[in-house]
Structure formats: structure tokens, C-alpha cells
């Protein structure tokens, strides 16, 4: 699924990495705990989160996660979007809740990120 399709499904606004809209995303994970993301997910893909601070971008960077969707209408500041822009990571914002955002993507064919045991 392309980044642009994900943005459309989530009715999301892309605020960083606009030029990467054609990038393919094949898996997803949703969490507000970066520790859990670092522990359990092994694919790249998209991270859905309601946590807004620059460590979300750092976590994505370390994990080779290519796209972050902030749920529940959370709005990151310029420090965060600049960091993402610099790292080539897409940031999008949606008003959907975590549950609904994950559900929408799942029912449109995006599945869970591979999991470490």
C-alpha cells in the first residue's frame, strides 16, 4: 500500500516527507510505548502512535520505520517534523483514534508488522 493511499484511508494530512508519497508500506504497528516498538516489531513500515515527542522519530529512525501516523488529532511541533524531514521519514496526522486508524488500515489489507518472539 502506498503512503498516499494510507493518508487517504486515514483522511490524514502529510506534514513531513511529502515527496515520499509513492513509497510502499507493507506492515504496521500501533503503540504509545516506544520501548515496546523497539522490543517487538521487526519490520519497517508504518508506526501509528498517540505519543508526540521527538523520540518517536528517533525510534522510527533506529528501527528503519519509514512512516509515522499521529492519531487522535495530535499535532507535533516543528522540531519533530524537521527531524523526520531530515531522516526521510513521512509524518502524517489523522483525527481518527488509534483503534479506528488501525482498524481502517487492517480492513484495507495492511497487516501486522512481523513480530519478534
Amino acid at each position: 500500500m502506498k503512503v498516499s493511499e494510507i493518508a487517504e484511508i486515514l483522511n490524514a494530512e502529510i506534514v513531513a516527507g511529502k515527496e515520499l508519497a509513492d513509497m510502499e508500506i507493507n506492515s504496521a504497528c500501533g503503540s504509545d510505548m516506544m520501548s515496546d516498538v523497539l522490543a517487538y516489531f521487526k519490520d519497517q513500515g508504518i508506526l501509528l502512535t498517540g505519543l508526540v515527542n521527538p523520540q518517536v522519530v528517533r525510534t522510527a529512525e533506529m528501527m528503519d520505520i519509514k512512516c509515522i501516523a499521529f492519531v487522535r488529532g495530535k499535532r507535533p511541533d516543528g522540531t519533530l517534523t524537521d527531524l523526520a524531514e531530515e531522516r526521510g521519514i513521512v509524518v502524517m496526522l489523522t483525527d481518527e483514534t488509534m483503534f479506528t486508524a488501525c482498524g481502517l488500515l487492517y480492513s484495507n489489507g495492511l497487516t501486522e508488522a512481523g513480530r519478534h518472539e
Binding site: 504509545d32 510505548m33 516506544m34 520501548s35 515496546d36 523497539l38 522490543a39 502512535t49 505519543l51 515527542n53 523520540q55 518517536v56 525510534t59
Partner: peptide, 14 residues
């Protein structure tokens, strides 16, 4: 710290 997304006790095991 947990409100910042860390402190799940997974760091050292990771």
C-alpha cells in the same frame, strides 16, 4: 518517563 513512551522495562533485555 512512561508518559514519554519509555520505562517498559524492555531496554536492557533488548
Amino acid at each position: 518517563i512512561r508518559n514519554l513512551g519509555f520505562g517498559a522495562g524492555m531496554g536492557l533485555p533488548n
